[in-house]
């Protein structure tokens, strides 16, 4: 195969040249590939959908990790659901304040494969003594664990597919119970230009669990379709309206080396385009 054609949408789609195939795993139920593309570096796809690329993963991982962590200000215990490629763990552990990060991945093979073929994603994070790796179904973990967390990050695949349960009422409710007071939960929530229903569903389901629920966004080029949304849930509405000075102080104190995230971007990311806020408002009526 010379090209990868994404199969998300019937009417439109992106294609990438496969310059070298590194890894391919096919079962009856899923098809995973890691290949090199001259511009994007290593690209991982699952069931015809781009999951992550070396060239732009920093945008996604920084925004899903640093926004909740810096808003929280003193997160010590972090839970990552999914994220078997290790990129999210890498960004979370950049925070010296974080003493413990649990990563729950359903499939051990994803981690093994990512360590070998996407080593720049984890960049050694799996070996950090603060990291605990749990191989379990994310839903089972949040239902059963006795641990508590300051920040929960759901780094899931598409809701059509293995990640489905991570977009359910039960998952948001169980996660909410694991948060310490003042905690924050964030989730990957799709590209609303093409998948407006995903945002609306999350508003209903996650919104039912948290005193304050909203979305923020970033444009991740290989998640075709403009901005991607991240869902935000917390019982403390003040956490998403922090002023630039506070965020700047947190950012400076954390001494982070970032390529996308800035305190200004952080604040601005909560401003939603009107087509999106209108759709959310309509759905709420």
């Amino acid at each position: 195969m010379k090209d990868f054609h994404e199969t998300l949408y019937d009417a439109v789609g992106q294609s990438y040249r496969i310059d070298k195939l590194y890894f391919e795993h096919k079962t009856e139920h899923q098809h995973l590939m890691i290949f090199h593309n001259a511009f994007l570096g290593r690209v991982m796809t699952l069931d015809g959908v781009v999951q992550t690329t070396e060239r732009d993963e920093f945008i996604y991982h920084e925004m899903l990790a640093h926004v909740p962590l810096l808003a929280h200000g003193e997160a010590k215990r972090v839970l990552i659901i999914g994220g078997g490629d290790g990129g999210m763990l890498r960004e979370v552990l950049k925070h010296q304040s974080v003493g413990h990060a649990t990563l729950v991945e359903i499939d051990a093979d994803v981690i093994t494969m990512a360590k070998e073929y996407l080593p720049n994603h984890s960049a050694g994070a799996f070996d950090d003594p603060r990291a605990e790796i749990v191989i379990a179904d994310g839903m089972d973990f949040v239902r059963d664990t006795a641990q508590r967390f300051d920040v929960i990050i759901s780094d899931s695949t598409d809701p059509i597919g293995p990640g489905e349960v991570l977009f359910s009422d039960d998952f948001y409710a169980a996660s909410r119970r694991l948060l310490n007071p003042g905690g924050v939960m964030v989730t990957q929530n799709g590209v609303p230009f093409f998948q407006i229903d995903e945002v609306i569903n999350t508003q209903q389901r996650m919104g039912a669990q948290f005193a304050d629920q909203t979305f923020y966004s970033a444009a991740v080029p290989t998640y075709y379709g403009g901005i991607m949304t991240f869902a935000w849930g917390s019982d403390n509405p003040a956490l998403r309206t922090l002023d630039n000075a506070t965020l700047q102080a947190c950012y400076d104190a954390a001494d982070l080396d970032t390529r996308y995230y800035t305190p200004e971007i952080h604040r601005a990311a909560f401003a939603l385009p009107k087509y999106l806020s209108d759709a959310l408002a309509r759905a709420q009526q």
Partner: peptide, 25 residues
């Protein structure tokens, strides 16, 4: 959809409505 098949055949309204959650795809 997971298999990347995005064109579906339907022949009545009930079947059409099953596609509502996926209408953008």
């Amino acid at each position: 959809l997971r298999g990347g098949s995005t064109t579906f055949v339907v022949d009545n309204l009930d079947e059409l409505k099953k596609l509502i959650p996926y209408r953008q795809r």
